[in-house]
Design a protein around this nucleic acid. Structure first.
Length: 576
RNA sequence: GCCCUGGUAGCUCAAUGGAUAGAGCAACAGCCUUCUAAGCUGUAGGUUACUGGUUCGAGUCCAGUCCAGGGCACCA
């Protein structure tokens, strides 16, 4: 719709241009949805742009363009979709969509169902997504939800617009931390204890290591030594590491299953360990590798305001950055992506900027666009989370509590529901996911139990409830009629129609800005409009013609809520 | 010191440079003999941190100041 209208506006401007024989470049046509209904459904500021360029009164230009439209519109695709066009005060041109347009939109939704809103605007893109990337040998914390859920949602959204997506989980399965855990295990660990509850026991050891290291700093050196041995292929350490990794992945996969998140690859840091040598060679060949303090290998990026990047430690061990560079090279060569998206917290901005810069300097990335999709950190109101200090909330616990709380409410509100536990799982987990996904990605999230477990107001259960109400009407009505006519509209119906047709645009915006929160906000507004409609406008008791239209409207609304929630990977119960 | 993010109602947060800055929570007043009250309607709550600039138009862009969080060589 928007593209067609933009084209039509362009044509009108051209006609105008010829009419007055003036020569000016045509500015890009922008369309927006005015916040106030009295300014129509779509609005363009083109007349103000031209007015500025030509030094003419924008309102006059707008009026002329409207005349142009009234005479010339018939020739193109927009015919019938627009009910009214008007020029307004400073120079806006406002378009009012016709009931035929809305009706066609509803019919399309009912026909395409789950596929409605899909497009091919991303068909030329191959997008590698790097998200979740938890550390193994530690339980996954709530704060991992941000990267995990945003990544999953971006993946789904890009798939929806026709791009090829590759989800690659860059597990934190390599690095000095394993030296520390291995040291701690050898020193204080007990194999049988660990086998009973692997992740939690390993975490305890890791936390203890840091406690002891605070008292005797020489422990850090021990940790580094153990890691060095691991990197050199020491048999005992390799065996321990493999075991820790396996146990961790087992547990991780059960969390991902519960969250409905999936990956195409689990190429963790260890995967790139034998690929770091060629990176160091490549940097050396390019002449950008220098030797720094203590024999460490560095790349000096001071002139780009990116400090000094450490490529190899003084003892020869590699670093996260080196493995990240190896990953850029590997992914570029194997997946030939148009872009690699790193869903990584804000605090790693410098690290990634260094990686991107070096990849460019050393020709490791071809034409691939490297994007840091940054997000704010999750903090307690009183300060930051820290796994090593034991100041974390584990994700599994949050999901359990959410489910528990949801179950209590289900029992209270709807004691006759047959599958209460199942619904409670959907409601609880969905609420947690929505709390993260509806939040603007860039700003910090302050963690409170109250907020993450919130089940009313702007929350997933609100959307689920709305969906369940709509489904309930449809069940009672039997099959939804395929044909209907729109005669006059109640204002609640109008608001709904106007919200519904914007779905595809929102998907595009969410994809372009890597921001699932736009979809969440949109779905919430849609649900609000539906609930208002639900309370004021009878459906099942309406006269036949009206009833058919309203059923179609209810059906379309529930479909759009479902499609939105699919993109957020949030499940919906049919009853609650 | 340098660099990166933020600062919007009491709290938590929305708002593709656009017209009267919106929700939720909390508070108050209403609405269940009609399709699920996990809902709906209404009231109250704002100098968008501050100062200047660009623009027909700024919460949004630019500069400076203040505040908060983060980063800056052997962690990831």
């Amino acid at each position: 719709m928007n593209e067609e209208l933009k084209k039509a506006i362009c044509e009108a401007v051209k006609a105008q241009q010829e009419g007055c024989k003036c020569d000016f470049s045509i500015p890009e046509v922008e369309l927006e949805h005015p916040s106030n209904n009295k300014f129509g459904d779509l609005s363009t500021n083109i007349a103000m742009k031209i007015g500025k360029q030509q030094g003419e009164n924008p309102f006059t230009i707008a009026e002329n363009l409207v005349k142009q439209f009234d005479s010339g519109l018939g020739q193109n695709d927009v015919k019938g979709m627009i009910k009214k066009i008007e020029a307004v005060k400073p120079g806006f041109i406002n378009f009012y969509l016709s009931n035929d347009f809305f009706a066609a939109n509803i019919k399309e939704i009912l026909a395409k169902k789950d596929s409605f809103g899909k497009s091919d605007i991303g068909k030329d893109q191959v997008v590698v997504l790097d998200y979740s990337h938890p550390n193994i040998a530690k339980p996954i914390g709530v704060h991992h939800l941000i990267t995990t859920l945003i990544g999953e949602s971006i993946k789904r959204t890009y798939g929806f617009i026709g791009a090829k997506t590759i989800a690659d989980n860059f597990l934190g399965d390599w690095g000095t931390q394993f030296g520390k855990t291995i040291y701690a295990f050898k020193e204080w660990g007990d194999r049988k204890e660990v086998e009973k509850d692997p992740i939690n026991e390993l975490l305890k050891l890791y936390v203890r290591f840091h406690e002891e290291a605070d008292k005797s700093p020489e422990l850090d050196e021990k940790g580094r030594e153990e890691f060095k041995k691991l990197e050199e292929g020491d048999k005992e350490n390799t065996e321990l590491w493999k075991w820790m990794r396996e146990e961790s992945i087992k547990e991780l996969k059960s969390v991902y299953k519960r969250l409905d998140v999936s990956f195409d690859y689990y190429n963790g840091e260890a995967f790139y360990n034998d690929k770091t040598g060629q990176i160091i060679d490549a940097l050396d060949k390019k002449g950008i590798l220098e030797t720094g303090e203590g024999g460490a290998k560095i790349v000096d990026l001071e002139k780009d305001d990116l400090r000094i990047a450490l490529i190899q430690k003084g003892d020869g061990a590699t670093l996260y950055l080196t493995r990240d560079l190896a990953a850029i090279k590997y992914r570029t060569e194997n997946f030939k992506p148009t872009q690699i998206l790193y869903v990584v917290e804000n605090a790693q901005g410098l690290h990634l900027a260094q990686a991107f810069k070096i990849a460019e300097m050393a020709d490791l990335k071809n034409d691939t666009e490297l994007v840091h999709v940054k997000f704010g950190s999750m903090r307690f109101p009183e300060g930051r989370m820290s796994t090593r200090k034991g100041k974390v909330v584990f994700l599994w616990d949050v999901l359990e509590k959410a489910k528990e709380k949801a179950l209590k409410i289900v029992e209270e509100k709807n004691p006759d529901l047959e599958n209460k536990a199942e619904v409670a799982e959907i409601v609880g987990v969905g609420a947690v996911k929505y709390a993260i996904l509806s939040h603007n990605r860039v700003t910090d999230i302050s963690f409170t139990w109250e907020k993450i477990l919130s089940l009313d107001g702007n929350s997933a259960p609100y959307l689920m409830y709305t969906y369940a109400r709509a489904k309930s009407i449809l069940r009672k009505a039997g099959e939804a009629p395929k044909d209907f006519k729109i005669q006059s509209l109640e204002k609640e119906e109008e608001s709904l129609l106007k919200k519904i047709y914007q779905f595809s645009e929102i998907v595009e915006v969410a994809a372009r800005e890597y921001a699932p929160s736009h979809i969440a906000t949109y779905a919430y507004e849609l649900a609000q409009d539906f609930n208002t409609f639900y309370n004021k406008v009878p459906v099942l008791n309406a006269d036949k013609d009206l009833k058919e239209f309203r059923l179609a409207l209810v059906s379309a609304t529930s479909q759009i809520i479902k499609n939105s929630m699919n993109l957020l990977s949030i499940d919906l119960p049919k009853k609650m």
